[in-house]
Structure formats: C-alpha cells, structure tokens
Simulated scan of single mutants.
Amino acid sequence: MKKFLIHIPLLVLSTTFTFISCTSSKNVDTNLPKDIAERPADEDSQKYEQAQLDKLKASIESESSREKCANASEWTFAPMGAKACGGPQQYIAFPKKMETTLLPRIEEYTQKVKAFNEKYNIVSDCMMIMPPTSVKCINGKAQLITAEQ
C-alpha cells in the first residue's frame, strides 16, 4: 500500500505534463509552409532573378513578334543577351519603326544578363553566334537569314 501511495504523485505529475504539452502544440502557426519548396521566392535568389530575366525576354520577343512582316526592308535585327564567355545569346528581328522603344529594352536585358552571369558565375558553351545577314518575311513573320542559308 505504501508503494502505491508513492506512485500516485508520479502518475499525477506525468499526466499534468502530458496535458500541458498537448495544449501548447495547438498554438503552432498554421500559416507556415509545409515544405521548403512552397517557400516564396526570395528576391535575392538565382531562381527569382532568372524568372525576371525570362519575363523581360518574353516581353521583348512578344512585342516584336506582334508586328506582321510584309516588307523585309522595314525590319532590322540586334544582338540580345550575353553569354558568359562573351558575345550575344541570340539575335532578334524587329520593325525599324519600333527601334527607339525596343533597343533600350534589349540593351537593358543584355546588361542584366551580364550582371546575372557574373553574380552567379554562370558558365556557357562559348559557341559564337554568327550575326544574321538579313531579315526575310515568311508567312507574315520575320525570319533571320544567316550566311549558311
């Protein structure tokens, strides 16, 4: 009987700690992400910056492709982007009448790509992209013509 009386305070104490620990877990913030992949993109992350570059590039390409190509002499081209080893990533065709609006945006994109490459030590294939020789209108779309074509 004496041993039984000694176990009662221990039983009460353990039950009290159990209830306290169970109630304290209810205060956990349920707004936290369940997985690190659900974490919002950090503005200083490489993935975020790449997405911003992709948006700018898509915007430039979309704006230039909205115009129908009927007369190739009304179109021109410019280098766009920058490879880590140097040189452009690509060339883009656009109407000459949009030159004042598109060229500054193309230059902005190119400068941002250069800064991105330096910041994240990006490595490229170092293949030189040859500039096109002219623009040709095919089915209403501007096509860049290279020396090999």
Rank of each mutant, 00 (worst) to 15 (best):
C85K: 05
K47W: 04
T15Y: 10
L53F: 07
G81L: 01
N27Y: 13
S64F: 03
L10D: 04
V12D: 11
Q46H: 06
D35F: 05
L11N: 08
L13R: 00
N31T: 15
V12T: 14
K3L: 12
S45E: 02
K3N: 14
D125Q: 07
M127K: 14
F94S: 04
R105Q: 15
I138Y: 05
F17W: 07
M98L: 15
T100L: 09
M80E: 07
L11S: 15
Q90P: 00
A37Q: 14
F19L: 10
E99D: 13
T110H: 03
S62M: 03
P95E: 07
Y120C: 05
I145V: 15
D35L: 00
E99A: 14
R66N: 15
I20G: 03
A58D: 09
I60R: 03
G140S: 03
K47R: 13
S21K: 01
C69Q: 01
P95H: 06
D125V: 05
P9G: 06
P132H: 07
T15A: 15
I6D: 08
V123S: 13
K26E: 10
S21A: 08
H7A: 14
G87D: 05
V28Q: 14
T16W: 11
A37C: 09
K2P: 10
I106C: 03
K34T: 13
T101E: 14
V135F: 04
K97A: 15
E118A: 14
S14Q: 10
Q149E: 15
P88V: 09
Q149H: 09
E38W: 06
Q149G: 09
I145C: 03
L13C: 09
P33A: 04
F116L: 12
R39S: 07
A37M: 13
K141M: 07
K136C: 01
P40A: 09
E43Y: 10
C126W: 05
W75L: 05
A58S: 13
P33H: 06
D125I: 01
P131R: 12
Q90F: 02
K57C: 00
A147F: 12
S59A: 11
M98K: 13
S24D: 04
